[in-house]
Amino acid sequence: MSTPGAPYIEVRGLARHFDVSKPLLNRVIEGQPRLILKAVDGIDFAIRKGETLSLVGESGCGKSTVARLIVGLYKPTRGQILFEGTDMGSLATRAEERALRKRFQMIFQDPYASLNPRWRVADIVAEPIRAHRLSSDPTEIRRRVDELLRQVGLSPADGEKFPHEFSGGQRQRISIARALSSNPEFLVCDEPTSALDVSVQAQILNLMKDLQRELGLTYLFISHNLAVVFHISDRVGVMYLGRLVELADARALFENPQHPYTRMLLDAIPDLDMTGRARTPVAGEVPNPLDPPKGCAFNPRCPFANDRCRTERPELRPVANGGVAACHAVEEGRLAAAPRLAPA
């Protein structure tokens, strides 16, 4: 099996492009070229067993696409996903793939859309058990479903109900119970709390942390909320327009962010402690992903951009906070260190 310390999941040069052109006929008539959206454009990272890696970024940065690539909802355009050293793309048979997929599960963002409205909760939770033929004995399945419902803070009696009888937070618990029912080791969580109220978000985040400790789960956590990411993550990757711009241990990243985009994101976090810290709202918006800027994609919004940034795309390089960042200015030492939010 895996060698100790070796990455549990490794992503190498992963890319996914979408063809968003109009139909052929329209293109010919209107004389337009093909439009390719590079949702994920070559990213590398690794996740260690038992840790939580978060990907954070604004809408359209490709973080959700990465999540869907890893669980196999999309096929990569380029690159590899290695699970304990096995290339997911190299699996020859459906059976082999299923055996691996069983160990992955996913939790979705919208608790109102992620449960089939016409199914009873017990059937929803039992679906992975039945699909992977982990058991065919109805009483045994029922016992497992009851146990799962209890584990996520619901009661076994809830199994008889339909999803619409539950609040958003309870539905997300059902989603988690379903994800856990095939005894997975690895959960991909795509904005699991973004649709929830804050007090419910706290319940779900606590539950996820408890489950991780009890079951030794590994999480890939996708979010746009930096405070949530800080709370749940061991390591954090920041994405911008389909690329990773910075990846570091959570504390290091928040205390000593390197990439100007990371700094900008941290600066935009509302100040709940009311310290009166002056904020400089950064100008500009994310450019059209169909036509990303040349060089570093962040250069039009970056106060430190120079000619090199406008022509040459930066690669990820080791930086002062112990992580990696893709920025010419950081590499050349043009950026002053910016001591940051997280107090020691």
Binding site: S114, A131, R178
Partner: peptide, 22 residues
């Protein structure tokens, strides 16, 4: 495009079954 169908795909259900049951 709804997430419950994607969830069924992640579980690894056969497309025919997803169409029929979900």
């Amino acid at each position: 495009s709804k997430e419950y169908v994607q969830a069924a795909r992640v579980i690894g259900l056969h497309p025919g079954l997803i169409m029929l049951r979900h």
